[in-house]
């Protein structure tokens, strides 16, 4: 039998954790409990974060949005600021798992699981999300790209917790999108995904562009050279194909039970075509 603890705030969380240094943290459970069931991990104590008040809320000050780590995907989906200003994150939440998975799984869980297939990750990469990590001794801000460094591998130090995700709200004129290919429409792990962030001038030419791919490497991947190709250009089939060619050479996909590497490589390029205006 495992102990299950419910700290109500961060202070309680630290003291419980200090008393049980081997404890595992439970956010939404959609990943941790699957791993416990298959005995990929074993735990004696579980610290359940669902009541830790500092991790819950979504706030905005007009320039930035602060998303508590325990925000679940449904809350993300329903948040008006996310919907109107962070289109790619909203779209990612909409195709993540399934309704009950979205009611349980959290953005913090998705980030800390650090799967290259995590649906919220490519959007957070192009949004250049910063993560606030807290520990008993203080807090620090880490960009998401530096936080995740391999499948399941994060920069979390011992006794450190992801408190919230901080995103600069894009100014008007910025478009963001998320596109995913999975093996079915819901309940699907992405085979390849793409988030994009584009600043468009009134004449349709691209200013800053950011592109991030999921499921085609050990982490979500961005390529400055590919993004640079778009600078100053108008979106066309031609330029998207050029970007796709370059990106598909740079990704490092694997073959697994869901898809082959070559196919993922081709999707890397082809998903860009979806950025063509209708």
């Amino acid at each position: 039998m495992k102990k299950v603890l419910f700290p109500l705030n961060v202070e309680e969380m630290w003291s419980m954790w200090q008393d049980n240094p081997e404890a595992g943290l439970l956010a939404g459970g959609t990943d941790l409990l699957v791993k416990l069931r298959s005995q990929r991990i074993r735990l004696k104590t579980i610290i359940c974060l669902e009541k830790v008040k500092e991790l819950q809320q979504i706030n905005t000050d007009g320039a930035q949005i602060f998303i508590g780590a325990m925000t679940n995907h449904q809350q993300l989906l329903e948040n008006q600021v996310v919907k109107s200003r962070l289109g790619c994150l909203h779209q990612a939440a909409a195709v993540l798992g399934s309704p009950p998975i979205r009611h349980m799984g959290t953005i913090g869980g998705n980030i800390c699981t650090a799967s290259p297939a995590g649906d919220t990750l490519p959007p957070l990469y192009v949004l250049q999300a910063n993560l606030e990590l807290v520990s008993p001794t203080g807090s620090r801000i880490v960009p998401i790209e530096e936080f995740i460094y391999g499948p399941g591998k994060t920069a979390l130090a011992p006794m450190e917790v992801l408190k919230q995700v901080i995103i600069d709200l894009p100014v008007p004129g910025i478009q963001t999108h998320y596109h995913k290919v999975g093996q079915r429409k819901a309940l699907a792990i992405s085979v390849c995904s793409l988030a994009c962030y584009m600043q468009l001038a009134p004449d349709g030419s691209v200013g800053e562009a950011r592109l991030a791919w999921g499921s085609v490497g050990p982490t979500v991947m961005r390529f400055p050279e590919v993004e640079a190709l778009l600078y100053g250009r108008k979106i066309s089939l031609d330029i998207l194909r050029q970007c796709g060619e370059l990106a598909s050479q740079k990704v490092t996909p694997i073959s697994d039970v869901r898809a082959g590497a070559e196919y993922r490589r081709r999707l890397t390029a082809n998903l860009l075509i979806r950025l063509l205006p209708d």
Binding site: R184, K185, A186, A188, I189, V257
Partner: peptide, 11 residues
């Protein structure tokens, strides 16, 4: 059921 894909309601 995560790797053996049977159709869901949207498929």
């Amino acid at each position: 059921l995560s790797t053996y894909i049977i159709p869901g309601s949207l498929d």
